[in-house]
């Protein structure tokens, strides 16, 4: 990836963050923190990695994406809108009565959503099912799932990990958004999950540790994952919850509430400045 491509991704990621802020502000609720921490990875997936077609969201052999930590859909919705799956304006109606964009992803109502999620721990199992279907049908599409680090406390995550390795689902890439925080506090204080790399390794995964905000790291990890045979990959991405909006960064408090008017304006100004700066460099 050259510098100009990287800059373009950073612009898109900043716009995705802006979309998450617009959405949660208009909804007066929602989950900005984890939306912002996963924005770079989701941007990369939809703009560089995955074979998807916004004109044909149900394309049979498309790559699949499951946001297992479904509450972080505001930035996923923004990425899907940027990609052309639906109108950007839908974000202003997020979580309203009758809106297309539900509080948690709804595969029946929203183009581009491959799995309905919101109950933690379940999406990653569904991703295993999709990867299994690809194997069974001898198709070469790939499946991606993003998990929260708090989410890794669910036993089901480890049931799915055992299944994925046992069935040699090398077409499955699980990304853990390691922002270090959940609702009741730091993951390490609520119910620690470390050493996460050793856990996934011992479950039979190919493990790659990256900086989840570095597009070089993200690219290298996804490229590596594609070369590994007979094993699923877990990308452990170190991230900052609330990334890109100064006052939301690393704040437990910004897990699950919408910004008020003043906070909204401040966040938008920051993100718009980031976008302008990056576009100026282009």
């Amino acid at each position: 990836m050259n510098n100009s491509e990287k800059r373009q991704l950073r612009v898109l990621a900043a716009k995705a963050r802006l979309g998450a802020i617009i959405g949660t502000f208009n909804a007066k609720s929602g989950h900005p923190g984890g939306s912002l921490s996963a924005a770079d990875i989701m941007t990369y997936l939809y703009f560089k990695e995955m074979n998807v077609d916004p004109q044909n969201p149900q394309m049979a052999d498309r790559d699949r994406f499951v946001l297992s930590k479904g509450h972080c859909c505001p930035s996923l919705y923004a990425v899907l809108a940027l990609k052309g799956f639906f109108d950007w304006d839908e974000l202003t109606k997020l979580r309203h009565v009758g809106a297309m964009l539900q509080g948690h992803p709804d595969m029946k109502g929203t183009p581009g959503i491959d799995m309905s999620t919101g109950s933690l721990g379940q999406g990653v199992s569904a991703a295993c099912g999709m990867a299994l279907a690809a194997k069974y049908d001898k198709k070469d599409y790939r499946v991606y799932a993003i998990l929260g680090d708090g989410e890794c406390e669910e036993g089901q995550v480890w049931e799915s990990a055992m299944f994925a390795a046992h069935n040699k689902l090398d077409n499955l890439t699980v990304i853990v958004d390691q922002n270090g925080l959940q609702i009741d506090g730091p993951v390490a204080e609520v119910c620690g999950i470390e050493p996460l790399d050793k856990k996934f390794e011992s479950f039979g995964f190919n493990v790659i540790k990256i900086d989840g905000h570095s597009f070089d790291d993200i690219e290298a990890a996804f490229e590596k994952a594609k070369t590994v045979k007979g094993q699923p990959t877990a990308i452990l991405a170190k991230t900052v919850k609330g990334k890109g909006v100064s006052f939301m960064e690393n704040q437990v408090d910004w897990h699950g509430k919408g910004p008020n008017k003043e906070e909204y304006e401040k966040a938008c100004a920051e993100l718009q400045a980031t976008i302008a700066e990056l576009e100026g460099e282009c």
Partner: peptide, 8 residues
């Protein structure tokens, strides 16, 4: 429960 929607 409101805005969180059907899953919650």
């Amino acid at each position: 429960t409101g805005e969180d929607g059907a899953t919650h």
